[in-house]
């Protein structure tokens, strides 16, 4: 049922210090437990703390941690969210905003992320993927040449070695909240750059469909997977995302159902 695992390294780490002296350290007990749990399965990294798009600087402590992580447990590829979650404080220290935020589709944003993506590619020597984010802003600053969120993905992948993690639930969220057709959006994506796909569940809150990772995958997202898989020639895997705190309430049978569902679509579409 499971062909590979995706690890978010921050979940087995702790942060020490603050501001300019912050370090993220791997907790050896949790690392050992994670390795035992995953056994011999291939492992990929899905980070959340890099803040690759922060104009004042990305999270160096995260990368230092990832250097050690790779030494201890090599990964097949590495992905991060396209966005930012830190800003510069008055004293120059990095401040967490508390929630991930989207990059504006501008030339400056594209160039910044592309150059950082290339640096990461060189640093780790494995493919580096950017995940298309869900967001709730209708009017971000934009450059006409970039053509919106999807144009930003094109611009970055065309000017760097970055590949794409196509998060179908994020795309679904944006389609619901921003009122566009998700299937047409899939067609506009840089599909030849997609190496991995995410599916997940969400829920309604205050009139928005939220990327909550709190349950089963909506039927529409399964349809999007069915639609997208034949169009992504280099895709290597599909991951079902669920937050730890919702795993118990969803239950192992439902989780197995979701994994089997993904597997069945994969077999039907990738074998065809």
């Amino acid at each position: 049922m499971v062909a590979f695992v995706e690890v978010t390294p921050e979940t087995i780490c702790r942060q020490r210090g603050n501001g300019k002296t912050t370090e993220i350290e791997i907790l050896p007990d949790l690392m050992e437990l994670a390795q035992q749990t995953c056994g011999e399965l291939p492992m990929v990294i899905h980070g959340v703390e890099l803040s690759i798009g922060s104009a004042h600087g990305w999270n160096d402590a995260y990368l230092r941690m990832l250097d050690s992580f790779q030494q201890a447990w090599p990964f097949v590829w590495h992905s991060e969210h396209l966005g930012f979650q830190t800003i510069s404080g008055d004293d120059g220290a990095s401040l967490d905003v508390g929630v991930p935020l989207p990059m504006p589709p501008t030339k400056e944003a594209a160039a910044l992320v592309a150059s950082r993506g290339d640096a990461i590619l060189q640093r780790y020597g494995v493919p580096f993927l950017l995940e298309n984010p869900a967001h709730y802003f209708f009017d971000l600053p934009t450059d006409p040449e970039i053509e919106g969120d999807i144009g930003l993905l094109h611009s970055i992948t065309e000017t760097s070695g970055c590949r794409l993690l196509l998060d179908l639930h994020n795309l679904y969220c944006n389609a619901v909240n921003h009122k566009f057709d998700p299937f047409k959006a899939i067609d506009r994506m840089p599909l030849d750059q997609v190496l991995e796909i995410h599916v997940a569940g969400g829920s309604w809150r205050d009139g928005f469909w939220m990327d909550a990772h709190d349950g089963r995958v909506p039927e529409r997202v399964w349809e999007m997977l069915d639609y997208a898989l034949p169009k992504v020639p280099h895709v290597a895997g599909v991951v079902f995302e669920l937050l730890e705190e919702h795993a118990v309430s969803l239950g192992p049978e439902a989780i197995a159902d979701e994994l089997n569902h993904a597997r069945n679509i994969w077999n039907a579409r990738r074998a065809a």
Binding site: A55, H56, F84, I87, S88, L95, V97, P104, T106, A109
Partner: peptide
């Protein structure tokens, strides 16, 4: 708008919503 000003502005509005002038200095 420069990227750093956009990010600082948005981040401050979210972090410092109780402040009377969260965009001060941006």
């Amino acid at each position: 708008m420069a990227l750093i000003e956009f990010q600082t502005g948005l981040g401050r509005l979210l972090r410092e919503h109780k402040s009377s002038d969260p965009l001060h200095g941006v």
